Simulated scan of single mutants.
Amino acid sequence: MGVVIRDHEGRVVTALKAKAIAFVEAIDFAWDVGISDAHFDTVRGLSTSPVGISNIVSSMCLRLQDFHFVQVLHVKRLGNKPAHILAQYAKDLDS
């Protein structure tokens, strides 16, 4: 699910935050289902996060330390085919 909230001048202010929260959910889900070796693909690197979500990024980094092995890779948006396929599937669901 993509979320974009803009300010009164049309600037995006929370889209990245929504993506960061989705990443936190992915980390929690992986841990909850018993995955200890994880590979996460993201379309935005953690090192380029704006100050407004620094607490979320810090939380993600702490949670990732619980895994036995973890790898976070930046994937160009056009190269993120699994996410695209899931989004196309989800848009056709009734609930």
Rank of each mutant, 00 (worst) to 15 (best):
L62I: 15
H39D: 14
A18E: 01
F67G: 01
T14V: 13
E25K: 05
N80C: 02
A20E: 02
V3E: 09
A26V: 03
V4L: 12
R44W: 02
D7L: 07
I27L: 08
D37Y: 01
H84A: 13
V3P: 05
D37L: 05
F23I: 11
T42R: 11
K19P: 07
F40G: 00
H68W: 12
V72W: 11
V43F: 12
T14W: 08
M60D: 01
G2I: 06
M1F: 14
A83T: 11
R11D: 04
M1P: 10
G34P: 02
D66N: 13
F23D: 00
I85M: 04
Y89V: 08
I21K: 12
S54T: 14
G10L: 03
Y89T: 11
D32Q: 11
V33E: 07
V4M: 11
V4Q: 13
G79Y: 03
I21W: 04
Q65M: 13
M1W: 13
R44F: 10
K17G: 03
L62G: 07
L46K: 09
S49M: 15
N55D: 12
F40K: 03
R77I: 15
L73Q: 14
S36D: 10
L73W: 11
V12Y: 04
M1C: 04
V4D: 07
I27Y: 06
V4P: 03
H84G: 10
D37Q: 10
I85T: 13
L86E: 06
W31L: 06
L46F: 15
I35G: 00
L78K: 15
D7I: 14
A22F: 02
F29K: 12
Q88C: 08
V43R: 05
K76A: 13
R6E: 10
T14C: 12
G34Q: 01
H39C: 11
V43M: 06
L73Y: 14
S54E: 13
G2L: 07
I85C: 11
A38D: 07
H84E: 12
G10D: 09
V3M: 07
